Simulated assay, not measured.
Amino acid sequence: MPVRKIVKIDEDKCNGCGDCVPSCVEGAIQVIDGKARLVSETYCDGLGACLGECPMDAISIEERDAPEFDESAAVEHAARKETNQPVHACPSTRMMSFERQANSSDRSAAVSDHSMLSSWPVQLTLVPPHAPFLKGADILLAADCVPFAYPAFHRDFLQGKSLLIACPKLDDYEAHLEKLTQIFRSARPRSVTVLRMEVPCCGGLTHMVRQASLESGVSFPIQETTIGVRGQILASV
């Protein structure tokens, strides 16, 4: 195997923003599990067109043993990628933060028709543990069904919080637990509010948060609010 120049991605620095993906015309880089990764060394030409696109300075060029760059295979892969539009290259993985402010001091009217979402993505699976919008934040972990059941979700719960959504019944519980543990260890949140539905399986969200707090060694106030299937607040502890 020859020694040649090839891209190196520092996963500790990478925040999964995806800015490097479109700059690689060969399609050698994709965001997978919240991190930019080389999908195949044979697709990387080692020229470093992606270097200037990384805001975290996580990409560099190194010389090491690596398979030869296969230009024909890279061209074919890039064309297939463009046609198929794989999920890992879609905008759902690109992190964004934005200001959301109420335009009235009257809480009931302030956000009745305005989004209070302050960051993206929101799916727990897609959020990188080192996402800057989680640092020292008040995190709202909501069950997937809550915003559909509770009509004033933005007004009453979302304002001023960084949102994560998950389902303890249908999602991979162990993967979510590991992700939350990584998030708590890195972000050291100020508080976590769990917003769950009244169905018994939804209590898994609160258990997940408490377990992740223990495993991460990071403590913070945890509040649980339960929403009924007809949209009412049943309990808040």
Rank of each mutant, 00 (worst) to 15 (best):
E174D: 14
P200I: 07
L180Q: 04
A212M: 03
S186C: 02
V199C: 05
C167A: 11
P221N: 04
D156H: 01
R196A: 13
V192D: 05
L170A: 08
V194F: 14
L180Y: 07
G204M: 07
T193R: 06
P189V: 13
K169D: 11
L158E: 06
A175M: 06
L180W: 02
R190W: 10
S213W: 00
P189Q: 10
H207A: 14
A212C: 04
C167M: 08
Q182P: 10
G160E: 05
E215M: 12
A187M: 05
I183T: 04
L177S: 13
M208H: 09
M208F: 04
F220K: 08
F157W: 08
D171S: 13
Q159K: 00
K179L: 11
G228K: 01
V229W: 06
T226F: 03
T181D: 10
C201P: 00
I227M: 01
R210N: 13
P168S: 07
I165C: 04
R190K: 15
T181K: 10
S219F: 11
A187L: 00
S219N: 06
H176Q: 14
A175Y: 01
E224K: 01
S213M: 11
T181N: 08
T206H: 15
T181W: 09
V199Q: 00
D171L: 02
F184D: 08
G160M: 06
Q211D: 11
E198Q: 14
R185Y: 06
R155W: 00
V194C: 15
Q211T: 13
Q223Y: 03
P200D: 15
L164G: 02
K161Q: 07
R210F: 10
R210M: 15
S162R: 05
R185Q: 07
E198C: 01
G203Y: 01
T193V: 10
T226S: 02
K179Q: 15
S213H: 03
Q211V: 15
I165V: 13
T226R: 03
T226P: 01
E198W: 00
G228I: 07
L214R: 15
H176V: 11
I222D: 10
R185I: 03
I183K: 13
M208D: 06
C202Y: 12
P168V: 02
M208I: 08
E215H: 12
P221Q: 05
L195K: 04
I227A: 09
L170W: 11
S219I: 04
C202N: 02
T226M: 09
G204V: 08
H176I: 14
I183W: 07
M197P: 05
A166W: 02
D172R: 11
V192Y: 00
V192S: 09
F157K: 05
P200V: 05
S216T: 11
Y173P: 08
A166P: 02
S191V: 02
I183R: 02
R230A: 11
R185K: 13
R185T: 10
G217P: 10
S213A: 14
V209I: 12
T181C: 07
V218S: 05
E215N: 15
G228M: 08
E178D: 12
L177G: 13
E198F: 03
S186W: 06
A166L: 12
F220R: 07
G204D: 14
F220Y: 03
G160A: 03
T193D: 15
C201G: 00
V209Q: 04
R185V: 01
G228R: 09
L170P: 04
D172K: 11
F220Q: 03
Q159G: 00
Q211P: 00
